[in-house]
Design a protein around this nucleic acid. Sequence first.
DNA 1: TCAAATCGTTCACTTAAGTTAAGAAACGAA
DNA 2: TTCGTTTCTTAACTTAAGTGAACGATTTGA
Lengths: 193, 193
Amino acid sequence: MQDTLFSFIAKYISLTDDEKHAILSLDLFRAVKKGTTLLKEGQNSKDSYFVLKGCIRTHYILDGEEKTTAFYTEMEALTPPCVISKTPSEYYISCVEDSILLISNSDMEVEVNRKFPKFDIMCRKLSEELLAKQRIDFDEFKTNSPEQRYLNLLQKRPDLIQRVPQHQLASFLGIKPQSLSRLRARILEKSKE
Amino acid sequence: MQDTLFSFIAKYISLTDDEKHAILSLDLFRAVKKGTTLLKEGQNSKDSYFVLKGCIRTHYILDGEEKTTAFYTEMEALTPPCVISKTPSEYYISCVEDSILLISNSDMEVEVNRKFPKFDIMCRKLSEELLAKQRIDFDEFKTNSPEQRYLNLLQKRPDLIQRVPQHQLASFLGIKPQSLSRLRARILEKSKE
DNA sequence: TCAAATCGTTCACTTAAGTTAAGAAACGAA
DNA sequence: TTCGTTTCTTAACTTAAGTGAACGATTTGA
């Protein structure tokens, strides 16, 4: 589990054993049960999440309907917009599977960054990289049809289609569950020919 | 023009007059004519852009068709994904209007960051903020219909609808130009009732 | 200035997604 | 295990976006 964390960090900075111990001593690992709500709409949270094992999702409730917009799995990090903007959260974060997460607090991060200035560098690199990746994802979403988006997902994150409920996948793809069912049937039909 | 830059920077860090002079002495302002291509697909660029006046856009060419995915206007910054990933660019950047830009090079930024460590802090804050903002934009795009997206744009960036060609706006909204025309006619029809 | 290209709109037609409803399958809690 | 809920799929119908084509209006450049 710790390996997952340190091989993630190693992508950005190199740590000494002392530094590794210091991080572990913060005791940030948390086991979270499937279905647990980590953040609710309207809350003022300062927590960021890193998925060591499992899957979490972000969703809105609009007109009483759940709209899932993102999934985070192993080796992925999430700092909710409300932490950055210091305003109440517009969305929910919940646990799709039993998961092990690293949950860090932004106040605590300020502290850690003072002790280990390296961390600031990592955070900068990480957020620049995530910004660029997300830009590409957004552009692909804009330029593709729902069917193309599904086929894309099948290529890039085939695990998600297995581990996540269809109705959550549907809104992640920007469509209704019924449309996803139909779209999958259509693809299957095509592949038979 | 310099005021635009310094009031932007002031949102993140405070600068002394000496620091301001140092920045100006780098001589990074560029006047760019409408239609100019700043970055081509396949190029390995290290340039980032900050719009002081005017408008630039990013677009792909897919199946021979132009797909515009983003616009950047006054007080907005753009670091292309290719600068971060150090791979050839997947898209084009071009000038929508005669513009005045600040164009900085990532090699040069490393230099500036060494002289003024403050800058690293600004870059981190900026990219974290942009990441959060873009996340919200992406989520709104996913959860809204084309018509809602257009009405949203009308609220949030009404200037864009005036200053940008319709066919570029259409792909920015994720639809075809004909659909945008139809959609606008539909809205007009509704408002008459 | 004039011809060519580009752009925005409209129309008729096709295709796919939204909506409403119903039933089967899977899941969870008592 | 069983009852009730949630989830997934299918179907019929509605609505909106994609497609191909045509038409002026504008812009561009030779």
